[in-house]
Simulated assay, not measured.
Amino acid sequence: MGKGAGAKQARRARRSAVAEDGINPRQACPCGSGKRYKACHGAPGGVTEIAVARPFEGLAGECELVALREFVPSATVKLQLAKDAKRPVTLGTVLPLASAALVRQDEDESAFVGLQVQTRSLDISRDVARSILWAQEAKPGDVLSLVNQDDEVGERLQDVLVADAPFEVEVHEDFAWWLAPDAEPTGEVALSLERANAAIMPTQRIGDAAYWTLAGDKAYLRWVRPEPEEQLLNALSRLGAAGTLNLGEGSKFAGSFRAHGLLVPVWDLDAESHSREWEKPVAELGERLADALEDKPLTSDERRVRDGLIGRQVTIR
């Protein structure tokens, strides 16, 4: 056998090979980077650690946590801790100076932990849990700028929260909740508050993990869905083929993105309509989606719609 034939066979073997961990090198990397496995975690000498694909899986608030982490500007949730707590803890989207956690110098010694923070590990669930545990031991006035990352072992949100507890989100128009009642911001905190308030986009929660946002002269609905991606894509395809994927007049399906293991469909909305006008259409679309989550093959029209939906997907952390 000549060298040319041998080289061809070797290339063919490499193309069909499956990595030791069971991942085809030509498939998308499970880390969510959008690259093929062979160009990402499967590359020789490449990244060896894989980020947790669904860091909030198993929590009743998984979809809400994804929304608060990725695109809701100002919101808080009072957390229900699984163990006796020294002080109450509130989860916030962003804290002053993008801190990971802080303890107020007020009567209750209220503790706050941030979700939109710089992380050192590949598991945001573990980082936020560490912030919660830090807040139980910190002194009033203490601020945690960045989560200490000594190792990859430690409790996660699934360990420190009541997993099935209601996750009640309160959306705010600004970041006044950073401050204790009657407190006046000073120094860097005052500057950070001013900048944060100036950059905030009007946002309203109009359904479970469904958020309306006004960005300049455009309005959007972003809806974090809990279903497995393939099942949800098929349901969206069925609605798209039937012409019922929109939210009524003044709306258009724009596409979807992946975040922390979940799919987030997005709709363009009429910016002239008040956010509350979309509550009923969202609820009705939710009912149509529930009916479309059936386990049967797609028709040829539905497959064509599905191909178009896939072409409009992106992945973010």
Score class of each variant (00 low, 15 high):
N246R: 01
D84G: 13
A199H: 07
G4S: 13
D159G: 05
K38H: 11
V153W: 07
R276M: 03
R26C: 03
E20T: 09
G308R: 03
R312N: 13
R54D: 03
A100E: 04
K83V: 14
R15S: 14
A85T: 08
W278R: 02
R104H: 15
A163V: 13
L285E: 02
G286R: 02
L144K: 04
P265F: 05
P55H: 12
C40E: 07
Q9F: 04
A196K: 05
A10L: 14
R120G: 15
P226V: 06
V266H: 00
G154H: 11
S110N: 12
V143Y: 11
E107P: 00
E229P: 00
A135Y: 01
E230I: 05
L298K: 09
L193S: 09
A28G: 07
A67G: 02
I206L: 10
L289D: 05
D84S: 14
D268T: 05
K8M: 12
T186F: 09
E168T: 14
A163K: 15
G32I: 04
R205H: 02
I310C: 04
R26S: 13
G243R: 13
L161Q: 13
A53D: 07
A138F: 03
A10E: 15
E284K: 05
E249T: 00
G6T: 06
P73L: 05
R156T: 13
E279D: 03
Q9K: 14
G154Y: 10
L179C: 10
C40T: 08
E188G: 00
Q105K: 13
V153M: 06
R238E: 10
P297N: 04
E230P: 00
S275K: 08
A5H: 07
V66T: 04
R14D: 10
S16V: 03
Q105F: 01
E279F: 01
D151F: 01
K296H: 12
Q118T: 11
Q204D: 11
G45S: 10
L191E: 15
K3A: 14
S125C: 08
S131D: 06
A101T: 05
L245Y: 09
K78Y: 00
P140K: 06
K86G: 06
F112G: 03
M201V: 04
C31W: 11
S300Y: 02
W178A: 08
K218E: 15
P202S: 05
D142W: 03
Q136M: 08
W178T: 07
E194G: 10
W278C: 02
R156F: 00
V224H: 06
Q9E: 15
S125E: 03
E170Y: 00
A219S: 14
Y37H: 13
A17P: 02
C40M: 10
L102I: 05
T119V: 15
G248D: 07
S145C: 01
F175L: 03
A196F: 05
L97T: 09
A67Y: 02
A165Q: 11
T48M: 08
R306H: 08
G46D: 12
Q204R: 15
S192D: 15
E57H: 15
E137S: 14
Q116T: 06
S256L: 12
E64L: 10
A235K: 11
